[in-house]
């Protein structure tokens, strides 16, 4: 993992299907919980200048509200056009002190 600021998420826990946006080193990060696991993505569609957090989260898929591109929140993988690129993924860690998000390793 690249050493970088770990940012505490202002929630101790999220409900399944819930998502929030936190700022890490000046970057908006979408943090969500699906089936008990936490995932974090850059809160920006890789196609157009649009916050993904304004879209819909269904299962492991997030839907961009602007043109309907879909992304897998576990990997950031782009699942449908018009986007063609993945969205950057971040690490989320859960500890007794709460949730922390930081930059994921490139190979993740």
């Amino acid at each position: 993992m690249i050493e970088s600021e770990k940012r505490r998420v202002p929630y101790r826990a999220l409900s399944n299907g819930q998502m929030i946006v936190v700022d890490v080193e000046g970057e908006a990060i979408l943090v969500c919980r699906v089936e008990g696991r936490y995932h974090a993505l850059r809160d920006l569609c890789s196609h157009a200048d649009q916050a993904l957090s304004e879209g819909r989260l269904r299962g492991h898929t997030i839907y961009c509200p602007l043109h309907g591109s879909r992304f897998d929140v576990r990997t950031g993988e782009c699942l449908s056009p018009p986007a063609t690129f993945s969205v950057k993924r971040f690490l989320v860690e859960e500890s007794d002190e709460g949730l922390f998000v930081s930059r994921a390793r490139e190979e993740d």
């Binding site: 304004e54 269904r58 961009c64 509200p65 043109h67 309907g68 591109s69 879909r70 449908s80 018009p82």
Partner: peptide, 15 residues
């Protein structure tokens, strides 16, 4: 107007 096969959008925005 829509270039993929299914999804959800806030509005239908022609790309």
């Amino acid at each position: 107007v829509v270039v993929n096969d299914h999804g959800w959008v806030k509005n239908f925005v022609c790309p």
